[in-house]
Amino acid sequence: MSNSLAADLIIPIIKIIIVGLFPLIMVMVMVWLERRVVAFIQLRLGPNRVGFQGILQPIVDAIKLFFKEDITHTGVDKVLFNISPVLVLFSSILAFCFIPLGGTMQIGTYNLNFWVAESPVGLLLIIGISSISVFGVIFGGWSSNSKYPLLGALRSVVQILSYEIPVAFSVLSIIFFSQSMNMIDIVNRQKDAGIWYGFMLPVSFVIFWISVVAETNRAPFDLPEAESELVAGFHTEYSGIKFAYFYMAEYAHMVLASSLAVVLFFGGWLPPFPNVAALSFLHVIPGFVWYLLKIMFFLYLFIWIRGTFPRYRFDELVRLAWKWLIPLSLLNILVIAFVRSFA
């Protein structure tokens, strides 16, 4: 009896707490990593004073932000103004419930799964939940009663509208092969296939990656918060802890996007070449570590891209989506469907 109580209640609660904390911890690491890597690209050193190599810098920053005065200026729609930071952060953390952070581990007779929830439509749920964040951006921008946030919010709407479509299409090509929208099944199918989908469907991956960078509002698509144009975009008027929420949400979204890329295209918790017997020693390393290594690579890619490229302009961003990515992804799906049904 007590055994099943532990299995049914306590372990899930612990898992929920861990999964809730995981993105936040990753955010901390990311904030530090971003500042260090961008500094290294620019031949600077970046934060290196607080803790070992400045690793405690994000914690210090967070403490500062939590104690800062939280300004709500006049003319603000208070309800939406307060809801939107929560909405943005919450949506990205919630989506982690369906991401498998690792495989199944046998502890005695108990099978410990490294995911909180398994859903037959997990992929759809993730895309749906993470899209809620755009409401936070719009509400935040609109309710600020200020012009820069408004422009940022407008840009954000257009951006999400344009880039959800190529994301959906590129993910569709995965579903052709996995025959399932269950995230765990998708990883297991990659194991069966013996090759990660990213190498099988490189075009889909490139489209997916470009669109996902655009959806997370990262450079070179960081138009809603383009620093040199819109000051800070939709969160110009936010300060203190609400600003910290937006800030964390941006990084949480990056972690989510990298997780999606890893699970869908790069075999989730699987080691490289999972079926090659000669490399079976790689299975010794737990799946969670493989997953972590892979997402770290993609998070690094985010930063690397940011440090390199100029920013797209609003009209070019939309043109890229509608004139290139969407036709290309449609064509890609057509080819994949054709190959899939005749080969």
Partner: peptide, 16 residues
């Protein structure tokens, strides 16, 4: 100029 357009690293390369 590059920083205004969003390429932030070039600013530092010019400055070095």
């Amino acid at each position: 100029f590059a920083n205004d357009i969003g390429a932030m690293s070039v600013l530092l390369y010019g400055f070095i």
